[in-house]
Simulated scan of single mutants.
Amino acid sequence: MSGGVTQLKHEGSHRQTIIAGAIAGLVSRFVIAPLDVIKIRLQLQVHSLSDPLSVHGIKGPIYRGTLGTFKDIVRDEGIRALWKGNVPAEAMYLAYGSVQFSAYKHASQFLSRITQPYQFPDAANSFISGAIGGACATTATYPLDLLRTRFAAQGPEAVYSSLRASIRQIAKEEGPTGFFRGLGAGVAGIVPYMGLFFTSYEGLKPVLATSSIPMPFGTSDAVAGVIASVLAKTAVYPLDTTRKRLQVQGPMRQRYIHRNIPIYKGVLSTLVRIWKREGRRGLYRGLPVSLLKAAPASAVTMWVYERAMAAMLAMEEILE
């Protein structure tokens, strides 16, 4: 059975691979959407239960941990609230992958044409191409990311009546730049993330390959990838929190579920302000659920991809 599954991964045309990948991405995003909403709600919470003075007079909810936030959202807003912002998020997932792949491919081809003595090592080429691909994809899909965050930040009171209405309202009241609030934090996180991931992965892979400890994911490459991803995400997470705080700035800032979101301007000043007022915990709110969603996302993606590809291949045989 396992041999058949392995074989499926290498079959299918380029078009079928794209379709299967798109289906897998959409389903995976739908499954992890509740974890994403929980993460965003925690990131936007500027007060803490550990500091009684910070919650004095707060009208919005006070969340405690992943499970507590889940229960509060379901109790106060219903189960559907866990999928707020899922439509722009699904569109972002589809567009991000295609833009990233295209930009990576073009950057990689350009770097490979550089002649000696100016040619970079292969490792540097991969890192630079990956950073360029990530930066291009982040910029191109950023308006969808911002809309996802704003809808997820809505409580029982609807700030925007629909996706179309939100686009019209942001364009009218905030102008084109309103769709790119916090973009600097998003792009700034790409380069260190790629560098840390690549460095950690390459350093861990030979160590784990020679280890006598059984690998939980089957291969040392998979384990090295998981560990490298956790390390890189943790390191750049404050920039993710900064991005979320900046994305909900604007005229609707006090109408979201957290009514006390401060006015932030600029990436560096936001980072410093969160550090001074909320400490290290403020910068890392929602990190556990962010790391938690990585495993089910990967598992669902591969499970759906294999079955979507199998269905297309089976349909192809029937039509022939």
Rank of each mutant, 00 (worst) to 15 (best):
M1C: 06
S2M: 08
G3Q: 15
R15M: 15
A22M: 10
A24R: 02
G25Q: 00
I32W: 02
R41K: 01
L49S: 04
D51V: 03
P52Y: 03
L53G: 13
L53Y: 13
V55C: 15
H56A: 15
I58W: 02
K59H: 11
T66Y: 04
T66S: 04
L67T: 07
F70S: 01
F70E: 03
G78C: 01
R80C: 07
A81H: 00
A81T: 00
W83V: 01
G85E: 01
N86D: 12
L94I: 14
L94R: 13
A95R: 07
S102T: 15
A103W: 08
K105D: 14
Q109F: 10
S112L: 14
T115V: 15
Q116A: 14
Q116I: 10
A123P: 02
A124P: 08
N125L: 11
N125C: 12
S126W: 04
S126H: 07
F127K: 13
I128L: 14
I128V: 12
I128E: 13
S129M: 09
S129G: 02
A131P: 13
G133K: 04
A135D: 08
T139P: 13
A140E: 06
T141H: 13
T141R: 13
T141N: 14
D145N: 14
D145W: 15
F151G: 00
A153D: 07
Q154K: 03
P156L: 07
E157A: 04
V159K: 01
L163Q: 09
L163S: 12
A165S: 12
I167C: 05
R168C: 15
G178L: 10
F180A: 06
G182E: 04
G184W: 08
A185L: 04
A188F: 07
G189H: 01
V191G: 14
Y193I: 03
M194C: 11
E202D: 12
G203P: 09
K205M: 08
K205D: 04
V207D: 09
A209K: 08
T210R: 11
S211G: 00
S211I: 06
S211Q: 03
S211N: 01
S212E: 09
S212W: 06
I213R: 07
G218V: 13
G218R: 02
A222M: 09
V223K: 00
G225K: 06
I227M: 09
A228E: 08
A228T: 12
A232M: 02
A232S: 05
D240M: 08
D240R: 12
Q247K: 05
Q247V: 02
G250V: 05
P251D: 04
P251N: 09
M252K: 15
R253Y: 07
R253I: 06
Q254H: 15
I257H: 07
H258V: 01
H258N: 11
R259A: 15
I261R: 06
I263Y: 10
Y264L: 02
G266D: 05
L268H: 02
T270E: 01
I274W: 04
R277V: 06
E278L: 00
G279Q: 05
G282A: 09
Y284F: 03
L287T: 05
P288G: 01
V289Q: 07
S290R: 02
L291Y: 06
L292V: 10
A294T: 15
A294G: 09
P296G: 05
P296Y: 03
S298L: 15
A299S: 10
A299E: 06
A299Y: 04
T301M: 07
R307Q: 06
R307S: 04
M309C: 03
A310G: 06
A311M: 04
M315D: 14
E316G: 10
I318A: 13
L319M: 08
E320Y: 07
